[in-house]
Design a protein around this nucleic acid. Structure first.
Lengths: 149, 149
DNA sequence: CTGCCTGCAAAGGGTTTGCACATTC
DNA sequence: GAATGTGCAAACCCTTTGCAGGCAG
């Protein structure tokens, strides 16, 4: 539950050459505020409560734009369901195959472990853009968060 | 391009409680032979050349069964396209965002690096089933393979 | 004012499903 | 012979798209 001002979001959009329209502000700020990695559909269902005029197709288009602009990441679960993530910091995903929740997992040690590994290796004929780590499994108590110490 | 006998495939299916029907043999052996991580649709298009009687819906159903039985893995690209992988050994995926090819990448050192990391950590309220590493980027020469030394 | 963006609704494409028939064990 | 699997085609999403009107810069 991150807090960010509408003015700041407008700046970010403008800096990326995107017009700061009402639907864009709403979609983007919602994604930043509640970062539960929603699908486009879930986001639409949630937004239409407060903003009934926004069309579903528009939500899909906006998300595409945000992804192209590099402001938002797209992740897919094993089942191929597309989810959106406003958090661009390097992090892994913990995916519960029972509840389908995605939880972010930050760990600098893990990141450098992997980064160092590929820095040591010679990767030929390939330009690495990003390295994604997904931890799949099951929550024991679905109502509690997963914690890694 | 792995080789495996039809008799062996029948055994594997029976061991998993799946009837060794013709369509299943065809789908499973094709997936093992040419492990290019195809989509269900691609697999169907390819199979119908030699086996025109197999229905598309059947290919989808068989793949679901094989995944449930743990004989085949399901992976998704960033875009949410479902691909199937008959190779169950621990390995990472190299995904080219230009050509949409998926190439397997085996490295024991990398695997133990990650395995050791999570063995050291206390993961609470979660049972880890698998850890997936996906390396996204672009091939420089689309016609050549990616090699990591 | 100009070009980009949106709402709407229809089309698209991959996947699932119900049914009657066929097949395996 | 009983239970399971299959072919077929229609139904079902989720996502994309064309268009006419709206809005930000």
């Amino acid at each position: 539950m991150k807090s960010i001002s509408i003015t700041r979001i407008k700046e970010i959009l403008n800096d990326s050459g995107l017009k700061a329209t009402h639907p864009r502000l709403v979609v983007f700020s919602e994604l930043i505020k509640h970062n539960i990695h929603p699908t486009a559909d879930q986001l639409y269902d949630h937004l239409k409560i407060d903003h009934p005029s926004i069309a579903k197709g528009t939500v899909y288009r906006i998300l595409d734009h945000l992804v192209s602009a590099g402001l938002v990441n797209q992740v897919s679960t094993k089942q191929g369901i597309r989810r959106y993530d406003a958090n661009l910091d390097q992090h892994a995903h913990i995916y519960c195959i029972k509840t389908h929740e995605i939880q972010d997992y930050y760990n600098d040690e893990l990141d450098s472990l992997i980064r160092d590994f590929f820095a040591r290796k010679k990767v030929e004929n390939f330009h690495i853009r990003e390295i994604k780590l997904q931890i799949n499994g099951e929550k024991e108590d679905p109502n509690k968060k997963v914690t890694i110490v």
